[in-house]
Amino acid sequence: MDINILREYIPLYKDALFLTMKIGWQGILLSLILGLAGAAILHFRIPVLKAITGIYIEIFRNTPLLVQLFFIYFALPKVGIKITAETCGVLGLGLLGGAYMIETIRSGLESIPVIQTESALSLGMTKEQTFIHVILPQAISMSVPGLLANIIFLLKETSVFSTISLMDLMFTAKDLIGMYAKTIECLFLLVVFYLIMLLPVSILGSIVERRMRYGQFGD
């Protein structure tokens, strides 16, 4: 391994990391919003929207992100919907993640005992107040480990962005290998930069999980 080559490549990887993180976190934000909205729809059993949410979850959980991205990026322009590669990445990741987040948040909502709702209602709170002030905060804290697992999964999935020609980490590595054939240096940096991106989230995840277990210990 050649140190000089590493030094030369690091700035390129750094740019790629920023792009990957930018798209990744925007996509994750979108997926959290979709997840909350979808979970609320399923929780309140809103007639038509409930069916749509169900279909949405099944479609996006049962197809690969790569195929979803290809469809959004290459197929939709043919029917007049043109979007940039970056928006496509955010949209694809957000839609995929949303389907997973809904399930996670919903199982959090289901784990809250009915007595919580009943008590809140008998205290004179409205249905909306009960949901926002009593049920949701508990449900979110219950589903934090699951949400973090989803976030790690989504950050890993960003590696397919290179296929729609976004200059992410994977794209940079592939490009540099193709041009200069310094395979080992390129792959080494690729691993290092994915670690920089994912290790903190992973460590956070295991800390949170341990704390949650500690919290349940008294039960």
Binding site: K156, S159, L187, L195, S202
Partner: peptide
């Protein structure tokens, strides 16, 4: 858990063959 499958694919297919 941490490495994307794509990275592992690249390491095995391009990296190990090289090394």
């Amino acid at each position: 858990r941490i490495m994307p499958q794509m990275v592992l694919l690249f390491i095995v297919y391009f990296g190990t063959t090289r090394v």
